[in-house]
Amino acid sequence: MQTITDCDMEEDDRITMLEPRFRSISLQALRPSARRQIAMHMDKELTTINVDNGMLCDWRGLAEIVGFSNLEISKMERTGKPTEELLYEWETNSNCDSTLGHLWSCLQQLDRKDVLSDSKSYVERDAQTFIDQQERLKNDYCPLQEPTISSTTVPANRDHLCDETRYLTIHDSENPDNPIIYDAFVCYNPDAEGKDGYFVQQCIKQLEHKHGLKLCIPIRDCLAGGAKYMMDAELIKARCRRMVIVISHEFLLSQDCDFQVKFAQSLAPDIGRCGKRLIPVLLEDRLKIPDILRHVTICDYTKPDLMEWFWDRLASSIRAPLDPEQELSFVPRKIPEPESLPDSISINNQDETSASPSQSLITSLLGKCTETRLTLE
């Protein structure tokens, strides 16, 4: 009769024992191959019950030991891969001890030495990989602040007392006492790909480099870290003479563009002044123009035959004065007063006897007019 000796038990413990340095590693270290190896054994539902604790010796008993409820176990069963679902729920549950050491202890309570021996190499391999990754991340760690710098050289009360409206653009941070007044604020959707960004690049090339205008392009000129809508509103209101609105499909989907246009329109609600401040540019065909811009003259960028005049027209529209006192005034032309009638009109080289009937009639009428004027005088 074969008996189990103490040496055999020690050999089994050696084969199934997990190294102590791996016991505190999280279950998240297990990769798919190790999870599948454990599931190959535990997914098979068994009818045997462990005599020591009364638990089923499959994945259901493991879930009970961990502390999952019957409802949670039923949900795991419906997934078709109960053991893998159990490991996932286990490692994401903050109320459970989700370490490899606890997993090993639970399998030992179920007396599943087959699982321990067959999956040990997979588990220890993944645990070692996890430790190496953590060590590598620790060595590659870069501090957020240079350790030689203890604190900023800017006085502590300077930022708290700062007027944020003075520091809106990159130029303001370098020269806050001499802010730039921009010729136009470019309203477009910077998240759009393709035509919108290309058109803004052309604006920089044609309007700034060629025509000498200064454009405010938020994604290029504005400082980061400020309140976006506050910065846009302050720039549109106090720092930009006009607004160039790039109308495209992406523009119509942008909430930022909608705010910018409506705010600019609110500064000059009547159609005349609004039309002078807002300069829409149509970038795509067959777009529904917003109602707020329907009565404003549009620069059409969609027609190739208009490209010859497009940039000069747009530059002139931006450069035109907004102040009525600066606009050209037309002096009305004076209408000359009629010359005074002569006291008498004679027909030269003709006497009354030789005058024609029509000439006699004209002479008679003029004579009566003269007599009437003399009487009134």
Rank of each mutant, 00 (worst) to 15 (best):
P324F: 04
D323M: 02
E284H: 05
L314K: 07
S254Q: 08
E234I: 08
Y301I: 00
I245D: 02
R242A: 07
I318Y: 05
I298D: 01
I271A: 12
I318S: 03
R286P: 02
S266Q: 14
F251Y: 15
F251L: 13
P304G: 00
M307P: 00
D256W: 09
I292C: 13
I279L: 14
P290Y: 03
P324A: 03
P304M: 01
L283S: 05
K237D: 03
A268G: 04
A315P: 06
Q255C: 04
G272E: 10
I298T: 04
V246H: 06
C299V: 14
K262D: 12
E234A: 15
L322N: 01
A238P: 00
D232V: 10
P290C: 10
D312I: 04
E234H: 05
V281G: 08
Y229Q: 12
M307H: 11
L322P: 12
L293Q: 08
L283I: 09
D285C: 10
V244G: 05
A315Q: 12
M231L: 12
D256R: 13
F259A: 04
L306G: 11
W311V: 00
D285E: 14
D305H: 13
E325Q: 13
K276C: 08
E308N: 13
V296G: 02
C240K: 08
K276R: 03
A315C: 03
I289H: 05
G272K: 09
P324T: 13
A264M: 10
E325L: 13
R242H: 11
D323H: 08
K237A: 08
V281D: 07
P304I: 03
I318F: 03
D323C: 06
F251I: 00
I289Q: 00
K262P: 02
V261H: 01
V281Y: 00
C257H: 02
S316G: 10
D300S: 13
S248Y: 00
I247Q: 15
L267S: 07
R313G: 13
K303W: 05
V246P: 05
I289C: 07
C257V: 11
S266L: 05
